[in-house]
Simulated assay, not measured.
Amino acid sequence: MPTHPFFQVNVFSTDPLLGNPLAVVLDAEDLDEARMAAFARWTNLSETTFISAPRDPRADYRVRIFTTLGELPFAGHPTLGSCHAWLARGGVAKGAEIVQECGIGLVRIRRSDTGLAFDAPPLRRDGALAPDLRARVLAGLGVAMDDVLDAQWVDNGPPWLAVRLRSRAAVLAVRPDYAALEGLMLGVFAACREGDAVDAQFETRAFIAGEAAPEDPVTGSLNAGIARWLLRDGEAPARYVISQGTVLGRAGRVVVERDGDALWIGGTCVTCIEGSVRI
């Protein structure tokens, strides 16, 4: 049975136990899709990634991203965690930035003062939810109508939709009915107020109904989609910090920074486990 370099990485927190874990398998050229999917189910993490040589000559490496349910064309914390593992194993970028090849194409990654940051992909779908879907989402979340400010698509690979609530307290109080939300990937978020006593400007939660762990601790792709919404509408500064994972006992921090036409989503990555795995 082949042996592969293996990392387990904590993403979006300086504390190795308070972010979002990611399993990374390197030198994965010999693994087929079925084996990757089986290993991702076995790890039982929100995502497991597999790094191999790029097919596009502009890229530094190729990554495939699997949840316990199937493959994603893109995801945020797997992008940063995979890049961290690739660099830790001696990867050297062809240029000033690292270029990742994945299901949505090429993604730029840069080193930042918070660790690593990816250039958020454009939204594939945005705008208001259809009335019947909006009603289903709000009922499944169990939120009071007075607490809901808006709901929109923020699909940037994963088919996220997001609900903006009136307060951080309303976000933390959500208790989803996952059966009612089956098949949906959705986030809730709100701006933080001075009295919230948190070192962030927004609080986010992410729910993936049907996953083994249906609440994701810290989510780069969702926050990237929300950032495009907020910045488009002038509802956020050019640089801000998001808190996520509070209800789960985590302390995730996602840094959003608009730089010209680029929207960078960053955070800290920490290696927790390094070794090899037989698949």
Rank of each mutant, 00 (worst) to 15 (best):
Q100H: 09
C83V: 15
C83Q: 07
H77A: 06
C83M: 14
G70F: 01
A93H: 13
V99C: 14
V63L: 08
G95Q: 13
I65Q: 05
G95N: 12
Q100P: 02
I65M: 09
L72V: 02
E101N: 05
A88M: 11
F66L: 05
L87C: 10
G95F: 07
V99D: 08
L69C: 12
E71I: 08
A88F: 10
F74A: 01
R89E: 09
A96C: 12
E101S: 05
K94E: 05
S82R: 08
E97G: 10
R89I: 03
H77C: 01
E101D: 05
G95Y: 10
I98R: 00
A96M: 13
L80D: 01
V63N: 01
G95H: 13
I65E: 00
G90T: 04
G90A: 07
L69Q: 15
L72C: 03
V92S: 13
V63M: 15
W86R: 03
T68V: 15
P78F: 06
H77E: 03
R89S: 12
G70S: 06
G81I: 06
G76F: 02
W86Y: 09
F66H: 00
G76A: 07
P73I: 08
L87Y: 06
I65Y: 09
K94H: 14
P73R: 11
V63Y: 00
V99R: 15
T79Q: 02
Q100C: 07
G81N: 00
E71G: 02
E101M: 01
G81M: 10
L80N: 04
R89T: 11
L80P: 00
A75D: 03
G95V: 09
A88R: 14
H84G: 02
W86H: 03
W86K: 02
A85S: 11
V63K: 03
A96F: 10
E97M: 14
G91T: 08
Q100G: 02
H84Y: 14
E97V: 13
T67L: 00
S82K: 08
G70H: 00
V99P: 04
I98L: 15
K94A: 13
I65S: 02
C83F: 11
G81F: 01
C83K: 09
H84L: 11
F74D: 06
L87V: 14
E97N: 15
K94N: 10
G91W: 05
T68C: 12
I98Y: 03
L72K: 04
A75M: 07
R89M: 13
V92D: 12
L69I: 04
W86P: 03
I65D: 03
A75Q: 00
H77D: 03
E101G: 04
W86L: 07
L80Q: 00
V99W: 11
V92E: 15
H77N: 07
F74W: 10
Q100T: 06
H77T: 04
T68A: 12
G90V: 07
L72H: 01
